[in-house]
Amino acid sequence: MSETPRDRILARLRNVPRPELPRPPSVPPPTDAPARGERAARLKSRMEAVRAEVHLVPSEAWLERLKEILTVRKVATLLYAPQTAIGEALQHAWETDAAGSPELVAYAGPVETFKERLFAVEAAVTAAAGAVADTGALILRPTAEEPRLMSLVPPIHIAVLRAEEIFASLDDAMRAGNWPADMPTNMLLISGPSKTADIELILAFGVHGPKELIVLVLE
């Protein structure tokens, strides 16, 4: 008799006839995979079907659009990641003209010391590392500079995505990014605001995560 539960479990599993079955062949691309030019539109329609708000904007106009979105919602505080490209662009834009715009709040220090502020902030802006058009979802790759909870705790999450990072399918995104070689601490697909249908299957939004997900697709 082997010694640890691990050894006993593995021994039991090894100890039975189990002819090795082949790996199923690689996936044929889905028949409805959108072509490059149609991906942003497909992503928009898929994500809006689950109550995300998707804006297709010219690259040079995204900060302006962001300010509009924040103003309409009367957002007073905006969580951002200072050491990222988006963060730098925000800082620069706010230095130029912060009138009527929310106060910028940097994710300063580890969550243990930042929690109170994190739970009080009204909105957060992060990058999306990519997106999947056929099912409609953003790909997020949180980093040390842009932590995980930014896209979860504040009631409004705004994600900035470059149109050329939209993939036809999740398979494509995985292959193109060679995911197996480099998995970060945490990676996410996000398709819309937090939702539930646990009461009589009636859809309700914002049960635990963000109540609103707004995507700026930079074209």
């Binding site: 409609g136 601490t185 996410l188 398709s191």
Partner: peptide
Amino acid sequence: QLVTTYVNLITS
């Protein structure tokens, strides 16, 4: 659903 709101991949 085509995809859930969140697909969470935890590696470390």
